[in-house]
Design a protein around this nucleic acid. Structure first.
Length: 491
RNA sequence: CGGGGUAUAGCGCAGCUGGUUAGCGCGCCUGCUUUGGGAGCAGGAGGUCGCAGGUUCGAAUCCUGCUACCCCGACCA
């Protein structure tokens, strides 16, 4: 048990906060609401980026970069978009500072006021569509399949490391298409890529679906989302993909001549995942002993801890261990051999366990004598002593086993915490006891959704894709319903 | 932006009904013994007590103003 670390049962929220800090992932900065992502946390993010970036490129997308500043006037061009973001924008109004007349410090030079204020991007649809206008004249210019990796700013009232910060890192894809079906298909393709990444890299099962109109992205015709269930029974929106229709094309006047020589508006999508995925990753697998990382995203997959008293012993151990390290690395496994003599083995065990390193190998004098090695896995905390022979292949298989065990564990947690509910009483009981996903009938109106939110803080997380039609009565209003939707309290 | 709270060593805190030299735990440094689950002992370094002003012989302690942060709401990827 890690010292000075709360259990999940004691206080889930504090457990999360402490974990992020003590596992050295991130910390609060001098700027309110903005985090410093520390090297270990950033290394995980880089793995996330690398995997996603490859998936995007494999599906024909290319990267580009657009400005961090957006002229204020751009924002007002799409009505629902501005309404959605206006309340959380950082605005640049001046471009120069000067020495304060009273000699104390430095002040804004009022003479250096911008003609037009600049918004620090909360998302880039507007600047990008203003740009696409110049790039698109013909159906031959389409599709445009661009992604950018960037930082964005949303001036949130209350922030939490990774889950909600005023500045965050993300990728945003912005595509332009000649036809509606092609754009819809793009939005769905990207949703499936996100789900694939969540499940196969993060080992995090997700529900795929569309958002209700009330939860839809500002400016979208349809918002697709992947939704994951955290260990405390709350839902987390892990990624969104939007079919934007022709809303932005109309707002920015982006038209093209079709094959039929018709002037038409362009169809659009946008899609994104953010550093919030880090929060999802942490809350999906970690335990009361600290972080638990799926091998595919762990910066260090295997750590080797030598047990030694003298430099001679360490040299002897190194002779055994260094070839193992090289053999593993040649199989694409990242290995750290921690031969520091400034920390004791017990300290290192605790340290790497807390940081979620999937596999730990321990080699000491006993092992050298007997040709063995101790293998400890982080997910189950099991230890066993194995013969060194063929250890590389055993480790590679173990990493795969850990990856799939984490997924299975998270999947059964979700299954055990998903409830089919048919009465309002039961609906409230589930929320007040276990939490989790609630599959219930909904009459399809925003009024009912709003009432449920007011009374229980639960919202519709997704209307699942490929939902089976089912006659029923709305769990709240009792009105006829044609399908079940997923409710939960959410982050 | 409403309601509550806090500010003292790198971190977490005590001291605060005015009174010596501001203390404790963790961490850090040195030495010796240790090293297979966060070692022990000894010694040591580290502070404009958030900022500005006031009361007083004397202020971390009392008063006023400011600032920052935290918690609970409203808002949210």
């Amino acid at each position: 048990m890690a010292k000075d670390f709360p259990t999940r049962a004691e206080n889930y929220s504090q457990w999360y906060n402490d974990l992020v800090i003590k596992a050295d992932l991130a910390e609060n900065s001098a700027v309110r609401g903005c985090m410093v992502i520390k090297p270990y946390g950033y290394a995980i993010w880089e793995k996330v980026q690398a995997a996603l970036d490859k998936m995007f490129k494999d599906t024909g997308h290319v990267n580009a970069y657009f400005p961090i500043f957006i002229p204020k006037s751009f924002f007002s061009k799409e009505a629902s978009h501005v309404e959605g973001f206006a309340k959380e924008c950082a605005v640049v109004t001046h471009y120069r500072l000067k020495n304060s007349p009273d000699g104390k410090g430095i002040i804004v030079d009022e003479e250096a006021k911008l003609e037009e204020e600049l918004i620090v991007r909360p998302t880039s649809e507007t600047i990008i569509w203003d740009t696409y206008k110049n790039w698109i004249q013909s159906y031959r210019d389409l599709p445009i399949l661009i992604n950018q990796w960037a930082n964005v700013v949303r001036w949130e009232m209350r922030t939490r490391l990774f889950l909600r910060t005023a500045e965050f890192l993300w990728q945003e894809g912005h595509t332009a298409h000649a036809t509606r079906p092609e754009a819809v298909k793009e939005a769905e393709t990207m949703l499936h890529i996100y789900a694939d990444f969540a499940e196969n890299w993060m080992a995090m099962p997700v529900l795929k679906g569309v958002k209700s109109p009330a939860e839809r992205f500002a400016g979208a015709v349809e918002t697709y989302a992947i939704e994951a269930l955290m260990q405390d029974g709350k839902a987390l929106q892990a990624g969104t993909s939007h079919f934007l229709g022709q809303n932005f094309a109309k707002a920015f006047d982006v038209k093209f001549l079709s094959r039929e020589n018709q002037l038409e508006y362009v169809w659009a999508t946008s899609w994104g995942v953010s550093t919030r995925l880090m929060g999802a990753l942490i809350m999906s697998h970690s335990d009361d002993n600290g972080l638990v990382l799926p091998p595919k995203l762990a910066p260090i997959q295997v750590v080797i801890v030598p047990v030694f008293k003298t430099p001679e012993q360490l040299a002897l151990i190194s002779e055994t261990v260094v070839p193992i390290k090289k053999a593993l690395e040649s199989k694409g496994v990242s290995v750290k051999f921690d031969d520091r003599d400034t920390h004791k083995p017990g300290w290192k065990f605790a340290e790497y366990e807390f940081k979620g390193v999937p596999v730990r190998l321990t080699v000491g004098p006993r092992d050298i004598e007997q040709g063995t090695i101790e293998v400890a896995r982080r997910d189950t905390l099991e230890k066993e002593t194995l013969q060194i022979k063929d250890i590389e292949n055993k480790i590679v298989h173990l990493l795969d086993a850990i990856q799939s065990n984490l997924y299975q564990r998270a999947l059964s947690f979700r299954e055990n915490n998903t409830f089919r509910v048919d009465s309002w009483e039961e609906f409230k009981i589930v929320l007040d006891t276990t939490g989790g996903f609630i599959s219930a009938h909904w009459d399809g109106t925003s009024e009912t959704e709003e009432r449920i939110k007011e009374e229980t803080k639960a919202t519709i997380r997704v209307i699942p894709l490929n939902n089976m039609p089912e006659e029923g009565r709305c769990v709240y209003s009792g009105k006829p319903s044609t399908q079940r939707v997923i409710f939960a309290r959410a982050y």
